[in-house]
Write a protein that binds this DNA or RNA. Structure first.
Lengths: 222, 222
DNA sequence: TTACAATTGTTAACACATTCACATAGTGCT
DNA sequence: AGCACTATGTGAATGTGTTAACAATTGTAA
């Protein structure tokens, strides 16, 4: 297959990864600002809220064009709507949750929908006691029906919260079923075809990193 | 060579952040390898498992001295023990969980202890129905007792899973109580004194980033 | 013992990310 | 309308992270 790396001008330009990771954070704060009646904001004020350097914020915004006004700042509503478009906020994404254990259960309750353009529309587990029930408004299917449901419901993203032992084989099935992205909560580094994007969320790791920094740097920057 | 121990003790300051973030991942895989009887490994083999470039792995290891042998690779047991020391694996850290809601509950069950040197030894909540009970072996205290318990139990790290509305004020109390690190699951960017380290885990964000990249046909790691 | 294959440790180049610093352009006051 | 501010957008400098490439060194086999 030919990879169309140049063709991604669709919604944004060639946005640096570090900038992309900050977009949802900007978006969230802009929404808060708008809700509390703030109509304009400067990069310096925003900097205090989101804790990124003001120059970083201005540079980030500038990748999308000249969104501000010199001597004035940025119009909150305008900016928020702009980022809303980039983040596809008017388009609800259906997400599958694979593995309804402790963490899976919590994520079902978590209600991503409230704070993002995504919604868990199907969950899967092997436990016959919960299969075919509805938890937090989400139907639990048997893992046997993984491929069928993903295709029927046109689900593009999966949240993987299965035990480590079955993580790799499940990821393979997800990839075969046409999933485009996996939010991976297992500690394994998944092997997937290159067209599938994996975003790792490794809770044990985050805690260990925090402990490492505390033990090794008495005081330092964030 | 013979000053390996010294390197380990003093290395902290010079280790790049990016390297530090990979240490727990190396450690985990080395443990898996050791458990399955593997005694030696090359940077290339390890690269296939953890999905970092082999040169990156060698560079990471080299910050701690010459841990391998040319033409041979790395001794799994030696390496694992070395990283175990760096990550303070023989020293169990007591962690407080603040906020026993959906996510907090899941993290209580999660049992960090099994896969790391940390253990949740106290949890806090405002809900009188669960205060003074024990959940997953962890006592739930009233949030009123936050400062007292943290100081009595010499807890240095807190996992913050409270509602966003009270996140900042709780963080302030944690900082005042002498907490050194916060694993922040709330969507807020906390304001804390510079000696307190914050590690943000923003679940909605991770999902949004994944969706953004999928929608914009890009492909890269983490 | 010597030769060969394997694999490290590291230099130098590159790539990505952040920040400084300021010309520029627009705001808002009088 | 003019002037003093303000805050953007960005070139240049700096900082951080990754990777190609290979000399150096060791294990292993004959």
């Amino acid at each position: 297959m030919s990879e169309e790396k140049e063709n991604m001008q669709t919604a944004g330009k060639d946005i640096p990864r570090a900038t992309a990771r900050r977009l949802p954070i900007y978006y969230r704060y802009l929404k808060i600002l708008l809700d509390s009646g703030v109509t304009r904001i400067s990069s310096n004020e925003l900097s205090k809220a989101v804790k990124f350097d003001a120059a970083t914020i201005r540079r980030d915004f500038s990748y999308f064009g000249a969104l501000g006004k010199r001597g004035y700042g940025y119009d909150v509503k305008e900016l928020m709507e702009f980022f809303g478009d980039i983040l596809n906020q008017d388009n609800l994404a259906s997400v599958a949750l694979i593995g309804v254990g402790n963490l899976g259960q919590a994520l079902l309750n978590f209600n991503f929908h409230q704070s993002s353009n995504a919604r868990i529309s199907a969950a899967f587990d092997v436990n016959p006691e919960i299969v075919n029930t509805i938890q937090s408004g989400v139907p639990i299917y048997s893992t046997d029906d993984l491929e069928k449901q993903i295709q029927d419901q046109r689900i593009e993203v999966a949240i993987l919260t299965v035990p480590a032992e079955v993580a790799q084989q499940t990821a393979k099935r997800l990839a075969n079923a046409g999933i485009q992205g996996i939010l991976n909560f297992t500690p394994l580094r998944l092997d997937v075809p290159k067209e599938v994007r994996v975003q790792n969320v490794d809770l044990t790791n985050e805690l260990q990193i925090l402990l490492y920094f505390i033990n090794n740097f008495e005081k330092d920057e964030n």
